[in-house]
Amino acid sequence: MRICVIGNSHAGAIKEGWDRIAADHPGVAVQFFAAPGDNMDGLKLFEGRMVATEPLLAEFVTLSSGGQTEIRPEAHDLFLIVGLGLRPPKMDRRLSAQVYRAVTSELSRCLACRVAGMIRMVSEAPILMLPNPLPARQPTPDETEGRLMRQEDCLRDVQSALGLNGLQILRQPEETLSSEWTTDRRWSEGSTTLAGVIGMAPGAMHPDSEFNHMNADYGALWLSIILADLAGKPRHSR
């Protein structure tokens, strides 16, 4: 099984997690292509390959992949898109269907979805999408009072709007949540920056006040769930 991970800074946790559990999965190879923020927007299709067209992106792609300068679709059995602006919106359930459609329509054009569309143009391999992790902070009253639409409904509708065969948007693992819309703080503590993970700034950590990025435990849990699903084991992602 050859897995290609394409993402932004949130892919850092997945990379750290993989480093921790790789030895337990000898039949799996994971290659990372990551760049912070929306730099991945510079990834373009060129003669069937996905090529970094911006110097900064090229630098991150090379560093994060261990020397690759482009993504060759035939080299991968599964694509995992991490973050890249796929963020379930918090919407009051009283908002109109029109507003909801406008939001999901916009979300289906986010960078993660554009990358998914690009992959599907050159590969039929399955695509899994991991949304940005939910922030690890105290929930707001809106989040606790059940006023908000369910995020899985929104993600399902975005998935449907994309209309790409073999694509699945996964919801954040239940055990990492402290509420419907927040991550338990322990999955965020000690998170490393993407530059730190890929060796551009070795060891660089997010500050303690950072609550949007997750740690190696989080990445390891995600990959364990995905690999178990792929192996047909009872542990299921949702």
Binding site: S96, E106, C110
Partner: peptide, 13 residues
């Protein structure tokens, strides 16, 4: 406006 709704669309609502 809900997160992610572009400003020009949000304004129409």
């Amino acid at each position: 406006a809900p997160t992610g709704l572009p400003a020009d669309v949000a304004k129409t609502f």
